[in-house]
């Protein structure tokens, strides 16, 4: 029905050598992004060698109460991740203007398992981060079309 295996090398050629800025190199998002860029044939380099700069302009994460039970106590929490990013060519006119992604996950709160909560939130953030990397890649690829 028209579906074909996704082709390779679809990132903009202006991003052949890309530096990531705005977050620490050790940040998990930076690592995941670098890995995905490499898998798409991009060399992730230091800024002074780069053709393009992928800048993370914003990264907010937090938690809010999503629902309260009939007992007036929290029953679900939502964790969210908001990422803003942009790409600018270094020495070229290439540009992807700032875009913002917001991802959310929710989980049932267990008042008798509070210590498990931080681990639960950690894995949910990890999964949002992986999704965010995929969505960023989709937007970068669309710039090459």
């Amino acid at each position: 029905c028209g579906f074909q295996l996704r082709g390779a090398g679809e990132l903009p050629p202006e991003m052949a050598r890309t530096a990531i800025s705005g977050i620490s190199e050790q940040d998990a998002l930076a690592r995941d992004l670098a890995q995905s860029l490499r898998a798409n044939g991009v060399r992730v380099v230091e800024r002074d060698e780069a053709d393009a700069l992928l800048r993370i302009t914003r990264m907010d994460t937090g938690r809010r109460t999503l629902s309260v039970g009939g007992d007036a106590r929290v029953s679900e929490y939502e964790v969210y991740l908001t990422i803003g990013f942009q790409v600018e060519g270094l020495g070229s006119e290439f540009e992807i203007p700032t875009q913002t992604l917001t991802l959310t996950r929710d989980y049932l709160f267990d008042p008798a398992g509070v210590l498990g909560r931080s681990e639960q939130e950690r894995v949910l953030r990890e999964s949002m981060r992986r999704d965010a990397v995929q969505l960023i890649l989709l937007r970068l690829q669309s710039a090459a079309r």
């Binding site: 996950r105 989980y107 267990d110 008798a112 210590l115 498990g116 909560r117 639960q120 894995v123």
Partner: peptide, 12 residues
């Protein structure tokens, strides 16, 4: 059981 609970079921 010190700090362990079950992950909620979800797509993740």
């Amino acid at each position: 059981r010190f700090d362990t609970s079950e992950y909620g079921f979800s797509f993740d």
